[in-house]
Design a protein around this nucleic acid. Sequence first.
DNA 1: GTTTTTTTTCCTGATT
DNA 2: TAATCAGGAAAAAAAA
Length: 256
Amino acid sequence: MLDSVTHSIFLPNTMGCEPLMSWTELFGTTEDYYPTVDHQTGSDLFWTSIHPEYWSKQNVCDWLQFCCDQYKLDANCISFSHFNINGLQLCSMSQEEFVHAAGICGEYLYVILQNIRMHGISFFNDNEETKPSIGDYNAKACLSAGGIKSQECHSHGRTSLQSSHLWEFVRDLLLSPEENSGILEWEDREQGIFRVVKSEALAKMWGQRKKNDRMTYEKLSRALRYYYKTGILERVDRRLVYKFGKNAHGWQENKL
DNA sequence: GTTTTTTTTCCTGATT
DNA sequence: TAATCAGGAAAAAAAA
């Protein structure tokens, strides 16, 4: 991981993933002209390959989400409504504005952003001396074992295409009505219980995501059952019904 | 390049 | 009977 980003040159062409859909198909706008990339599986590479000023609104949202995941920040601290802005607006925010919008995580995120802006490096990927100390920014309080991500980020229908893990794919599908089309539905939203309505459609979609046309619900469900061990999912004794476990995050409704 | 984790594939047997 | 669930085992793929 430490060697995932070693250069500080902003080169949009360094992005390596094939888009599953065109950018305009996904967002319906010509404003966001960068092709889709797998931010999450691509680690920090994306965020350092495009200057933050050129990030779209979605990129900003994804970056916050990425930071929460990567640095185990508690997204409860962050008011995502304040970050419905593009990269240029993000870069023009003062530290005070950042702290106001992102709470106790604000100082921490601000430093990470400045590092990317000024040095083209992501926070944990370069020399030790470039890293701010967590303690210095009093960010310990915003670290959590399972930070809650904003629903706003997941409701754009993009993360379902970006999520690297199966459970995140499922979660994002549940949170994206426009992508879901009745494949999954909540049984108990507050408890995180959901039902697979169209099992083969789900498998097909996951297969498309992984470029595997041999995927079946049988195999997908085996992968889901492995999540019982890790607390990502909990067993529900009903057919096609699953429940998010204590180690799953980002599915709760407006826990800000 | 190695190790660890996640996902895929295949399987047997049970349940709905 | 078909679909699903439960897991073991092993291999492949992805991530660290």
